[in-house]
Amino acid sequence: MNFELIIFGISAVIAVFGATMMIAQRNPVASVLYMILSLIAQAVCYVQLGALFLGVILIVVYAGAIMVLFLFVIMLLNLRGEEASEQDTPAVSQFTKYVFSVLLTLELVFIVKAASLDSVATQVADQVADGFGSVRQVAQVMFTNYLYPFELTGILLLVALVGAVVLAKRERDSYSSATDDADDDRSERVVE
């Protein structure tokens, strides 16, 4: 039992625990916080695999920026816990969703077992070069072999930015009519 294995075990348990609690929570704010816990544990695994740059990026961008965006939207919408709507869904779908997710996971386990990956893992993994996964090495590959995908990602981000603004924007011209519609909807729902 060496030190690396202990660190991996602890971080793997924390990652799985955080993910499980995330889907089990009823309060969305709590599930965001458990997701951040899981992401930090996954970043430890990344660093163990030699991906120093990506470990930092995972914490800074994912846990720092994207999860705060989720938290911001949850607080903007003022969401409380999930509404109890179990009686709306039929019992068949209650049952089948668990069955199918377990089946899918078992299928993935069988694929990995059938592929017999241990030969790949033990042969090469011990001789990892110095500076593997450092910023310099990742950047050298990214800006030579993967230059066009990288530039396309920039365009994708621009499109996503414009799309998010267009989607979330309230129409200024029809502001009064839009609020009238919303009021109508609200009164209809009350009548129902």
Binding site: A51, V120, V124, G133, Q137, V138, V141, N145, P149
Partner: peptide
Amino acid sequence: KALNLVDGHVIVFL
């Protein structure tokens, strides 16, 4: 890491 290639890191970044 197993194949000692850094290409996977670039894909993860994307």
